[in-house]
């Protein structure tokens, strides 16, 4: 901090600290704290308050009924009805004055009361996200290795460019392209129909979209880049002579990878896995689109529905926090497994 002041002076240093503080508190720490707080309470109405509310509702009904009568009434009946209406209104005002607002109750209920179904979805989401991560790792490893170690610089650049181009289009559109391929009357089924294997008329198409595999294929597709690039970055720094040396010493291809390449690329692999897991566990768009916006059983969709369909923000916050915890646990697990520190997680 002293060197910052020495170079940029007190004014600029204060400005930097202020900006960093706004970001740290306003955009990172406080939102998370508020979300945590929100997840720890729910609203409850005391029993007598419930009765009171019901009485008020009844009175409103009576008033509207009397007003209806009054419009049809004539002569002195009018004054009589108006007096009764006034009396009812006075009572409403009186009751509303003592009506108590629902109270906040703090506790873990939002977490504990997660239904069996929701919990099952949560477990399934985490499990699927892990599978997606593993799949992406297996799919991307040879590509990263080829780009980093085997290809000539020009070919490597072309390879990386080819990787980037699909990312030009939005995640939604990327996944949507898969929807078109896997749909009931999509590209693959049409091909099968052309072969005579399925028949659209009899609806004997293969329902790819109903298999979890569809989500896997689309997710791996959507997040390859986040797996390839960190791995590529670390593999690129591996001295090619080391590979030659390993081969020269008689190591098989597997052994060379297991003993030389993977240990060297460990930080990159860790980062790739963390990013892919985080993106797929929290993915909202992919399951949403693949399931055509209908059901869908990804935890993120559940959270969305808590917020914007059930309007139960407290439960939604609790679910979101649960997901965050799962991601944090996964990150620490991977860092421990790979033996890398938080400092290595930088592109």
């Amino acid at each position: 901090m002293r060197s910052l002041v020495a170079t940029y002076g007190r004014g600029l240093t204060a400005l930097f600290c202020g900006l960093a503080l706004i970001w740290l508190l306003g955009l990172i720490v406080l939102p998370q704290l508020f979300m945590l707080e929100r997840s720890l309470w729910w609203q409850e109405q005391p029993a007598e308050a419930f009765a009171l509310t019901k009485r008020i509702d009844d009175l409103y009904n009576e008033v509207s009924l009397l007003e209806f009568d009054r419009r049809a009434a004539e002569g002195e009946e009018v004054a009589q009805l108006e007096a009764r209406i006034a009396a009812k209104r006075a009572e409403i005002a009186e009751l509303e004055a003592v009506e108590v607002a629902p109270v906040r109750v703090y506790g873990l209920a939002n977490y504990v009361k997660m239904s069996g179904l929701h919990f099952w979805i949560f477990v399934k989401t985490i499990f699927y996200a892990m599978l997606v991560t593993l799949l992406a790792l297996v799919v991307c490893y040879p590509i990263a290795f080829a780009a980093a170690q085997l290809a000539s610089p020009a070919n490597a650049a072309l390879l990386l460019l080819g990787l980037v181009v699909p990312y030009a289009i939005n995640e939604l559109l990327r996944v949507y392209a898969w929807l078109m391929i896997l749909d009931y009357q999509g590209v693959i089924n049409s091909f099968l129909a052309w072969l005579g294997l399925v028949d659209f008329e009899k609806r004997t198409w293969v329902p790819f979209l109903e298999y979890p595999g569809a989500v896997f294929v689309a997710m791996v597709y959507a997040y390859v880049l986040f797996m390839v690039f960190p791995m590529y970055n670390t593999m690129e720094t591996l001295d090619r002579n080391q590979l030659e040396a390993a081969r020269d010493l008689g190591a098989s291809t597997w052994r060379t990878h297991w003993r030389v390449v993977i240990p060297h690329a460990r930080p990159g692999i860790a980062v790739g896995c963390i990013m892919t897991f985080m993106l797929s566990a929290g993915s909202f768009a992919v399951p949403q689109i693949i399931s055509r916006g209908t059901g869908g059983d990804w935890f993120s969709q559940l959270i969305y529905r808590q917020f914007f369909e059930s309007f139960n923000w407290n439960v939604g916050a609790a679910y979101a926090f649960t997901l965050l915890l799962a991601c944090i646990v996964f990150i620490f697990l991977v860092m421990r497994l790979a033996g890398v520190g938080i400092r290595d997680i930088a592109k």
Binding site: I28, F34, M35, M278, I345
Partner: peptide, 28 residues
Amino acid sequence: GLLYGILVSPILTPGIILGISTLILWRN
């Protein structure tokens, strides 16, 4: 180290959670 961890944490946080937490804070 701690400061670094906090400042890069948003990259490692699922996007929906960033959206939700921001929404809750500012709604308050």
